[in-house]
Design a protein around this nucleic acid. Sequence first.
DNA 1: GCAACCCTTGCATGCGCTTGCAAAGCGGGT
DNA 2: ACCCGCTTTGCAAGCGCATGCAAGGGTTGC
Lengths: 326, 326
Amino acid sequence: MADVAREAGVSASTVSRVFSLPGTVRTDTRERVLAVARRLDFTPNRTASSLARGRTRTLGLLVPDVVNPYYAEIVKTVQRRTRAKDHALFLADTGDDPADGFELARIMARQTDGLLLAGPRMTDGMVGELTRAGPVALIGARLPETDSAYAQLDTGMRHVARHLAALGHTRIVYVNGTRTARTPGHRQPVQDACDEFGIELVEQLGPFDLTFDNGVAAADLVPTSGATAVIAHNEMVAHGVACGLARQGRSVPSDFSLVTVDDTFMARAIHPALTALHIPLDVMGVRGVDLLLQRIEDPDGEPRHAALPTSLVVRGSTGRPGGARP
Amino acid sequence: MADVAREAGVSASTVSRVFSLPGTVRTDTRERVLAVARRLDFTPNRTASSLARGRTRTLGLLVPDVVNPYYAEIVKTVQRRTRAKDHALFLADTGDDPADGFELARIMARQTDGLLLAGPRMTDGMVGELTRAGPVALIGARLPETDSAYAQLDTGMRHVARHLAALGHTRIVYVNGTRTARTPGHRQPVQDACDEFGIELVEQLGPFDLTFDNGVAAADLVPTSGATAVIAHNEMVAHGVACGLARQGRSVPSDFSLVTVDDTFMARAIHPALTALHIPLDVMGVRGVDLLLQRIEDPDGEPRHAALPTSLVVRGSTGRPGGARP
DNA sequence: GCAACCCTTGCATGCGCTTGCAAAGCGGGT
DNA sequence: ACCCGCTTTGCAAGCGCATGCAAGGGTTGC
């Protein structure tokens, strides 16, 4: 920077201002400085800038599992939005352990301007603590004190129930996990939606987590349940159910209809393609980043929440019970 | 840090040394400083440290598409290894455009100690330029001048060909993309392996890229090719082929056998599960990080290359031609 | 008992940029 | 012609930590 200043015949502060506050420098000086900078291939050192300003222009994103397409899509959109806002992105994959996630978050909080937690696997108390310690925004989860962007599952589940009811299903199983079963925000909407459309609901708790393998296990219990349709709480478990049913020689949708919550590219990557409740992950990511950036600007504002609409995408995995023609 | 120094009755430099060069501080002083630091909840400011040392302790990872499980697995393993080595990870999703990828890489290079390029979508010349500009390591690609960790596809393809030949296949189609078709490192091994086992090879070039949709399109051409088995160049396209065949009402493996190169969780998430040439992505990620870290330590050493062994995982998608019993 | 060393510690300076403050330049209104 | 206010620029003091150098204390060997 000193070199550029000398070559351009100005002081270092002017060079600095050309890059950080271009408006305060007269146009011709600015041009001259920029020309020299280009010639000398100079770019301001971001580390030094961070130190001087106390801002890193870096955001941190924590996800439980990048390999899961649900989170991968979030990573993708968050990463893009972050870059569009001229920030860099630290990524951490936390796994399922709450303590690990919390620890990682704390470490990351020290090196970033703010944290984005996607589907955090930690206790509400931990999230609260992080929120008090620095800017935090949630993606795909909601807590009163923390900014968040999440999907409106209640109306979404009504779409699903209406669709199944219209096809003639009167008894369905809902494949859930023990974790989400305890957070009523996810389970209650299903119950309410089924009640509204006169559907009998059989809740099938996966043994622990909503993984592919547990979906396969759940599929084994479906035929004896007396239900004709299955709603899977997320897409990994939905694929497990689909795969499990196929292995049993059952056919979708003629033996059982299957609906998944979440709609990543994988829903279309099997045959029949899965009818899905589309969660707007891209919008959630963008809103999450924006909320976080606002929070960084104004640390003491009221918590803000973005509830995003879902939509039902009907594909080949749902049909009339027993494969009947309409 | 000044506070800690005062409380502990030492100078700031000693506190600094406790954290950065613990060996040079007497044990009891160190303990005392650490105790105070813990009490005051002090951790060294990483930005300041970076500025003073000229090292950010941050690595950058560029992938073309995080949503693709192949790259997601790489992200996961790289992220874990990076953290284990006490570094942070910047992530960028570059998309398929070479110029974008290069530009992003240059930006990232300025804020990190080194760059990891996974399946780079840029020209060899661009990679060379980056390599000359700073530490770079390749994952899943090989270039003479750049450190790299990649899979030994030649022996891998021989495993695949031997497997198919043993089942009785004599004519197979290889679904490739126009891009990889031009990089002999990927195509030639297939040809060689088929030659060795007396298999006739029909090369089926996807119209452009190795995506799911192009796999579906490729599947339409398989039945008329006279082949009884398909090798897909990567897993996305393999799923497309599987899905396309299913939509045609063809059955795998009784009508056609299908083998995929790459073996992510998705290979087991469909029925029948895909026989796959397993690429050790986890090891590749770890080796990539390690190579990069070594390169950072020793910028002028000879380029190093890690060729990792693949393995064939036989699952349900391969069988005898025409579904014959052995 | 003394010299030669090593281990610890503190001092001072520097990493490269930002920014409050003040000075200089400029134009306009009276 | 003079004063005021605005714009543009420079000066200097940090931001928080790392580290070369030197000093002090302790140890070892002869």
